[in-house]
Amino acid sequence: MNLDDRIAQELRACIEADMSAAVLPSFGALLGGLQHEAMRRPTARTLTAVLAVLAMTLMAAVFALPGILVTGSQVVHLRPTVPETRPGSYNLGQAPPSTKSLPPYSYPPLPPCGSWNGIVAYLVQLKSGVAEGSFHPAGFTVVPLTPYGPGGASGLVYAVPPTSLPTPASVLLHNPSVQAVGTVNRFPHEAQYLSCYYHLSDRPLAAPYVAAARSAFVHAGYVAGTRAASDLADYLHDDPLLPGALIVQVDYPGAPLPPPPGAPANAKFQGTDAYLCIENSAHEVLATGVIPAALA
């Protein structure tokens, strides 16, 4: 192992140990902090506002007024509607005046693996006494996770939000049955597990997780032993509720689907069955579940 890898490995281990004592406030407490911040610095805020108004007046007098006097049509945009530096936006430059002057088309560079790491689902820890099967938040597709093995994790539900719901986390957080909610992102944060290959072939450290998951799915009766290794794709996600654990999703070919209207008569459509499990860093499976074919 070279020096950089060793430093990175040690640093991550130290931070993980350090983070075990970290105190992250709830979002409600953060909102309270915002109000407190606003109340704490009224004088500073007023002073800043007065200074800003003075500066703007001075600038208008120096630059804008002569412009209006000379041209009679200058418009000063004090605040553009869309800030140029907003995150996620890309400066594509000035649009050409007509399609005739369009430059030759060129493909944009492929974004690096993991550059879109959006939320794909939520992992919900239910309050004790609430059965996984009885939790049905409106609009969500819920996958109850069955505890696996002697030290299995109970009360966990994998919830896929409807696309029409703008604030799924809040809906889940305000559900009386819920104890904690974490977001499941498309990719894991650890570079050693981050892959865009369907079988994670470029990440050897991911292989034991997938092997343990396949074995658990056979043991749980989801797939036959002969099909265990014939999966279509494997995915790893960070477990947001249990530090160090990963959510492993393995897709298998499912039953044939009815063809959609207008499809050629001889066309065949096949569904995908997806199974997921939660594994800790020792590759022990803690819970398993089945994602309905329509969502896989």
């Binding site: 991550r12 983070m19 992250l24 979002f27 703008p166 809040s170 909610v181 977001t183 992102n185």
Partner: peptide, 20 residues
Amino acid sequence: DFRVEELYLAHRTHLLSVAA
């Protein structure tokens, strides 16, 4: 607030590690 809450839930642990 809900939008920032989503981001807070999604990124707080990771950002805290970098901040640490």
